[in-house]
Computed example of a mutant assay.
Amino acid sequence: MRPFQRFAIADASQVGEARRAAQLLATELGFGESAAGRLALGVTELGTNLVRHAGGGALLLGLDGDTAIEVVSLDNGPGMDVERCLQDGFSTAGSAGTGLGAVKRIANRFSAFSQPQRGAVIAARFEAATTTAAAPATDLTVAGIGLPAPGERVSGDSWGLCLKEGRTLLLMADGLGHGPDAAEAADLALQLFRRCASAAPAAVLEDAHPSMRSTRGAAVAVVAIERSLDRLLFAGAGNVSGRLINGISDRGLMSQPGTLGLQIRSLRDVAYDWPEHAILVLFTDGIVSRWNLADAAGLMACGPMVIAGWIIRDYCRGHDDATVVVVRRH
Rank of each mutant, 00 (worst) to 15 (best):
H178P: 09
A199G: 11
L163F: 07
S241D: 14
C162S: 10
L229Y: 06
L170T: 01
G160P: 04
V220K: 01
I245F: 02
L169G: 08
H209N: 12
L176K: 00
E206I: 09
A197Y: 04
R213I: 04
Q191S: 13
E165G: 11
G242D: 02
A185H: 00
G177S: 11
R195Y: 09
M212S: 05
L161E: 12
A221Y: 08
L232G: 09
A219Y: 05
A203Y: 11
R231E: 15
T168M: 06
G238H: 00
Q191A: 14
V223C: 14
L205Y: 04
I225L: 15
G175C: 09
V204A: 10
G166L: 15
D207K: 07
L176M: 14
A185Y: 00
I245R: 00
L192N: 07
A219H: 04
G238S: 03
A185N: 01
N239A: 13
V222D: 12
L163P: 00
T215S: 09
A182R: 02
L233V: 07
D230E: 13
P201Q: 08
M172F: 13
G160W: 07
F234V: 08
R243C: 10
R243Y: 05
V220G: 08
A173F: 02
A237T: 02
T215V: 08
D181Y: 01
L163R: 13
D174W: 00
L205C: 07
L163Q: 14
E165P: 01
R231D: 12
P180M: 06
A203S: 15
L188A: 03
D230N: 13
H209A: 10
D181T: 07
R216D: 05
A183R: 12
M212Q: 08
R213D: 08
Q191K: 14
T168V: 07
P201C: 12
E226A: 14
G160Y: 09
G236R: 01
D230A: 07
L188I: 06
L170N: 01
R227L: 14
R243F: 06
E165M: 06
E226T: 04
L188F: 04
D187H: 09
D230K: 07
A202Y: 05
R195W: 08
A173M: 02
L170W: 03
R216K: 12
N246C: 11
R216A: 10
E206N: 06
G242F: 01
L229P: 04
N239H: 08
A202V: 07
A199H: 14
A208I: 04
D230Q: 11
R227W: 12
L190R: 11
A173C: 08
K164D: 11
F193I: 06
P210W: 10
T168F: 06
T168A: 12
G175M: 08
D174R: 00
F234Y: 15
A237L: 03
D174Q: 02
L163C: 10
L232F: 11
G160A: 14
N239E: 12
A237K: 00
